[in-house]
């Protein structure tokens, strides 16, 4: 018994080491004064300084942020509607097609989606004159198309776990369906909506392949800039950029995680006291 547990936790520890070591090394070497990766030339934050003076990167980052926020908001809206359709409307025409179109983007190779989106935009432009070239608009449309599925999956699972008698009770007490959704359902599934929003934000700000297809002049996102730099080899500036991303994400996740953990602990504690009393 003891040996088995030990083996399991060793496997877990090695797994975590595999996941985190590259990131940790990246962060450490972002403080390397030397331009060469292997040679430690002393501690320095000069790459961060250079990064902050690189207008191209800053512009791209700002654009990516805008795209990600718009994408996350639209995706969360559409994805939540789709989840409601899937969980609450059991039967309707074209359900199979609908579920197919929700699940396929989860695994579809990005390169296919990217090509397909671009060809759509080109064809539409030929036929209707819209969209006029590739721009932020086409990037947002492409991002929403693949990230709304992820929102749907997250919200769907929460919605399915929700006790439907809460909605029935609200209706029984005289609330109309729309009111029920806004006053009862939405607050209960709100954490899933937030998770979905963050997920689609991340997917968007991270995407390079699809963006490369549907981007146009003047709409270069951060991953496209990074990708073109990285293709030329390792650069300390990118290390610095990566470290900033890691720092932001870690702080965000840590705060989110602590909040969730506290909520869970509260729930467990109140369950236990309730059980003791009962």
């Amino acid at each position: 018994m003891k040996n088995r547990a030990l083996a399991l936790y060793t496997a877990l520890g090695l797994g975590y080491a595999f996941l985190y070591l590259p990131i940790v090394l990246l962060v450490i070497y972002s403080f390397n004064a030397s331009r060469l990766v292997t040679v430690w030339g002393g501690f320095s934050i000069k790459w961060y300084g250079e990064l902050l003076n690189d207008e191209k990167i800053l512009d791209a980052a700002w654009l990516s942020l805008k795209v990600a926020v718009i994408n996350a908001t639209i995706s969360t809206f559409l994805g939540t509607l789709a989840a409601v359709v899937l969980v609450r409307f059991r039967r309707f025409t074209g359900r199979t097609l609908f579920t197919g179109m929700i699940t396929a983007p989860l695994v579809m190779p990005e390169i296919i989606t990217g090509l397909a989106m671009l060809l759509l935009f080109v064809s539409m432009e030929l036929a209707f004159g819209w969209p006029d070239g590739r721009s932020v608009t086409t990037i947002v449309i492409a991002h929403v198309t693949f990230s709304l599925s992820f929102v749907t999956v997250v919200v769907q699972s929460r919605l399915a776990q929700m006790d439907i008698s809460l909605e029935e009770a609200a209706m029984d007490l005289g609330a109309r369906p729309v009111k029920v959704f806004l006053v009862i359902t939405l607050p209960i599934i709100a954490p899933a909506l937030l998770a979905g929003w963050l997920l689609s934000f991340t997917l968007s700000i991270d995407d390079v392949v699809i963006s490369s297809f549907v981007t146009g002049p003047g709409s270069t996102t951060l991953p496209i800039v990074i990708f073109s730099k990285v293709r030329l080899g390792v650069s300390p500036e990118i290390n610095a950029l990566a470290s900033i991303v890691v720092a932001i994400v870690s702080v965000g996740i840590l705060v989110f995680g602590i909040l969730m953990q506290r909520q869970e602990a509260d729930r467990l504690r109140s369950e236990r006291t309730a059980a003791d009393q009962g």
Partner: peptide, 11 residues
């Protein structure tokens, strides 16, 4: 997974 995919490959 929440940190950039590109950056992790780059690492």
């Amino acid at each position: 997974f929440w940190t950039s995919f590109l950056i992790r490959v780059y690492a």
